[in-house]
């Protein structure tokens, strides 16, 4: 066995999202107004990048950042390079636009195929814009990879070619092991992403660090990408009620207040008796 086979190729799926509190629904057009919103790397994705870099610290190998989105994602994705990742692949094409989970996972999977051999694909738990958490299993299905979702700790064994993930369960935890290649989704906040390294920054911003693939650069079936490949349709958008704290004061005897609190808890917690 050569040393090189022990060096994993890790792919991290990263998305750039608008800061949630700055997104508005235009009351007239009923469309999403994210023009004024600042963007950031989807915070859970940074937890996934950190895990990939920890694996790289230990085993060496290569960390590829994979993202699908408009060209403005690019400078954000380069921050992952300044954290220690090796290369960015940005899937950018108008034809990819309007993709739902099915089309997104298909497109990402086709890119992963192109990047193979791949040992591990890491994703954040969910994106703050869509918040569905359905990309990791969908991706695993397209690729025929194993999956472990919502892990807060991972351990790779490159000689046995397995990965173990610990995930919290109601009142405890479990450790699952699957053979590589696998898709892992990482629980939000389970590690502290390292800050970007100023020494890597100039390197990270060199043009050749980012490869942009359009649909024609990839082996994709046009029927499966973008709006065309998306079975779901958005039929309406509304601004949700304000997320400001309600600041409602409850009053009464301890027993009365307790009844009111119990009722509130039942509203927000499914498991409360």
């Amino acid at each position: 066995m050569t040393y090189a086979t022990n060096e994993p190729h890790l792919v991290v799926c990263v998305k750039v999202v608008p800061k949630p509190e700055e997104v508005r629904v235009d009351p007239q057009s009923r469309r999403l107004d994210r023009a004024g919103a600042r963007s950031e790397i989807n915070p859970p994705d940074l937890n996934a990048v950190e895990f990939a870099l920890q694996i790289k610290d230990r085993f060496g190998g290569k960390v590829s950042i994979l993202s699908m989105g408009p060209p403005f994602f690019e400078p954000y994705l380069r921050i992952c390079l300044a954290m220690g990742a090796d290369h960015v692949y940005l899937l950018s094409d108008r034809l990819f636009g309007g993709a739902d989970t099915l089309a997104t996972t298909y497109t990402l999977a086709q890119a992963v195929r192109r990047l193979e051999p791949v040992d591990l694909v890491l994703c954040g738990e969910e994106s703050s814009d869509g918040a569905t958490g359905q990309v990791p299993p969908g991706l695993a299905e397209w690729l025929g990879y194993q999956q472990i979702t919502l892990v807060n700790d991972i351990e790779m064994d490159m000689s046995r070619r397995t990965v173990r993930g610990r995930r919290e369960r109601q009142g405890g935890y479990e450790i699952l092991e699957v053979p590589l290649p696998a898709v892992i989704s990482v629980k939000t906040g389970c590690n502290e992403p390292r800050f970007w390294d100023y020494r890597l920054k100039p390197w990270a911003f060199a043009p050749e660090r980012v490869t942009v693939w359009s649909a024609s650069d990839m082996d994709v079936d046009p029927e499966f990408i973008g709006l065309a490949g998306s079975p779901t349709q958005v039929v309406g958008l509304e601004q949700a009620p304000s997320r400001e704290r309600k600041r409602i004061m409850l009053s009464g005897s301890p027993q009365e207040v307790a009844q009111q609190l119990a009722a509130r808890l039942r509203e927000v917690l499914p498991l409360v008796p």
């Binding site: 989970t101 099915l102 958490g133 359905q134 397209w142 999956q147």
Partner: peptide, 22 residues
């Protein structure tokens, strides 16, 4: 649930259909 999401996510792709999550 964690298992329900794992299942639904894979199933939707297998069936090539739409999934509205959460």
């Amino acid at each position: 649930t964690p298992n329900g999401r794992d299942l639904a996510g894979r199933l939707a792709v297998k069936l090539r259909t739409g999934l509205t999550a959460d």
